[in-house]
Structure formats: C-alpha cells, structure tokens
Computed example of a mutant assay.
Amino acid sequence: MQGSSRAAAVGSREALTGALAATADRSRLAEELFAVVGALDSNPTLRRALADPSREGADKASLAEQLLAGKVSAETLVVLKGVVGQRWSTERDLSDTLESYGVETVIAAAEAADRADRVEDELFHFERIVAANEQLRGALGDQTVAAEHRAALVDSLLQDKVAPETLALARQAVVAPRGRRFDRTVAGFLDTASARREQQTATVTSAVPLTEDDRNRLAVELASIYGGKVHLNTVVDPRVLGGVKIEIGDEVIDGTIMRKIDAARRAMGA
C-alpha cells in the first residue's frame, strides 16, 4: 500500500475494533464484509464512487449508508463507513482492506471459541493438500465453474471435518479468489491471522510428524530467538530423511539430513 492507504488502514481500524466488540455474531459480520467486497469487485462504478479520493469522507460514508442501510447489520455498516470514509491510494486497497477485515472477523470468532491455532493449522494443511493434487487444484480454481459449485466441492471435502471458521475461509478463498491463485489467497489469509494475533509463523518440515512436546519445545525456542509468539505450520516430507527445516520470515534454517548429504556431495564434486 502507498502512504495514504497505509494511513487509511490505520484510520479505519477503530471501526472494526468497535464492531467486533459490539456483536456476538461475528460469523454474520464476516459474511457481510465478504459480500460487500464481492459487490465492489463486480461493480466498478460503485467501487470508484466509494474510493474516490476527491470526495469528502463523510460524503462517501453517507453514500454507503444510503445503499446498504437495512440490508446489512449495523456493525457491518459501521465498518464499511469507517473504511470508505478514508482516503485510499487505489480502489483495490480499499477492497483489500475490507477483505482483510472479513478474515480478521473470522479469526476473532475462532479466538472466542479458543480454536484459532486449529483454524490456522487446518487452513494451512488444506492448502497443502490442494497444492499436491493437480486435479483438485484445477477444479477449485476453474473460474468457468459457478461459484456455488466450487463452494459445494469445498463443503464435501471439509464439512464436519474442520472448524467452522476454517470452512468459512476455505470457501471464501475458492469462491472469491479476486484474481489470485488459491495458494496466494490462503497465504494472505494466514498472514492476516498472524498479524491479528501478533505472532510470527514458522513452517517446519520434518521426515516424521512432530510430537506435541516437540512442537511446544520448538515454538518456545523460536520465540526466544525471534521474540513474541511463534505459531508452527508443520509439513511431513520423508525425503528430508531426518532433522528439520524451519522457514520463518525470510530466513531458512535447514538442519535436515538431506541438506547435509547434498553439502557432502558438493564438497566431493559430485
């Protein structure tokens, strides 16, 4: 985001915070925010009107209220007015921020139910499953197939197997990719979750599944190194043979046996 959009995102956050505090039905709030994003994406005229930097913020907020009062909850309207009342560098920055607030609202619902870690784990692993299955990846990403059919496919795969918040985010990523690949959309959702929870995320690859004790110990060690909470996304890959590979931010700590074998081969000129 450019400077004015960064300031707009900061300025609009109070509206989201207030809406989350005011409503117990965060699922509805998230659904409505996602629906508003869809409406803006499909209606360029409306999007330009609400993002127009030459119009007064109060004027744009009034327009939003005229259009949506009685059609969405009071909390959703508060968030929307708080967002459109700011000055955005681009129209996309406005809709991206609304989408991120929808994701945050889903995560807030998971936090209230004490399953935010579970949601992050499930969403990460679903993306990995999709990435490894070319047929499934194609089916979920086929924009010529109606959105409701793609949503139904997600339901058939995840219904009653994951947390409701995981299902909501997986459906949203498939139904409204907004020009992005599924993996990029999910990565963005997970980044939003990490930012909301004020944590860093580490992807840990090992030859065998880590035990819960291993996960907890590694999370504590990484937190002591990087500061703050660290959430682990784990990947099992027998090809690494042993040890672990850790990716956190832009850093990679590769302590796998395969890496050591590769290093030995290079040293021998193989």
Rank of each mutant, 00 (worst) to 15 (best):
G179E: 03
Q172S: 13
Q172H: 10
R265C: 03
E251G: 09
K161N: 14
L222V: 07
R184I: 12
Q172L: 12
E221K: 15
T201S: 11
T192V: 10
I225D: 01
E247N: 08
V252Y: 00
M258D: 12
A223D: 05
A187C: 12
L169Q: 10
D250I: 04
M258Q: 14
I261Y: 02
V162G: 07
D237Q: 00
L169V: 07
V235Y: 05
I246M: 00
A187I: 09
P177I: 13
E212M: 05
N216M: 15
D191H: 11
K229C: 04
K245T: 06
A193C: 11
I257G: 04
Q172G: 09
R180P: 11
D160H: 15
A267V: 01
A195L: 10
M268V: 12
A170T: 15
A195D: 14
K229I: 00
L190E: 03
R239W: 00
G179T: 08
T256F: 03
E247M: 07
L218E: 06
D183G: 15
R265E: 07
L232P: 01
L158R: 14
D214R: 08
K245S: 03
V236R: 03
R178M: 08
P177N: 10
G179Y: 02
R197W: 02
R266E: 09
T203V: 13
D183N: 11
M258E: 07
R180N: 14
A223T: 02
L167E: 12
R184N: 10
A223I: 06
A267W: 05
A176D: 09
E221V: 13
G228A: 04
A264K: 08
A187V: 12
S206W: 03
R184T: 11
L167C: 06
R197D: 00
A263F: 00
V154K: 14
A202L: 05
N233M: 01
G243E: 02
D155R: 10
G227A: 06
Q199C: 15
L169F: 07
I261K: 02
I246A: 04
R259D: 03
G227F: 05
R215Q: 08
V235W: 01
A176S: 14
A193M: 11
R150N: 12
A195T: 15
D191N: 11
A151F: 13
R215S: 01
K260A: 08
V175M: 09
I257L: 10
I248H: 01
G269Q: 01
D262W: 05
L210F: 02
G242P: 00
E212W: 04
D262Q: 07
R239V: 12
E251W: 12
K161C: 04
Y226F: 15
S156I: 09
D237M: 02
V174K: 09
P164D: 05
D213I: 15
E221Y: 07
I253Y: 02
Q200C: 05
T201G: 07
V208P: 11
L232F: 03
T205P: 02
L210I: 06
G242Y: 01
G255W: 03
A163Y: 03
L153P: 08
V244K: 06
V162F: 06
E251T: 13
V175T: 12
R215P: 07
T201K: 10
R266F: 01
G227T: 01
L158G: 13
A173G: 06
G249M: 00
G227W: 00
V186S: 04
P238N: 05
A168V: 08
L218D: 02
S156L: 14
H149E: 11
G243P: 02
V240P: 04
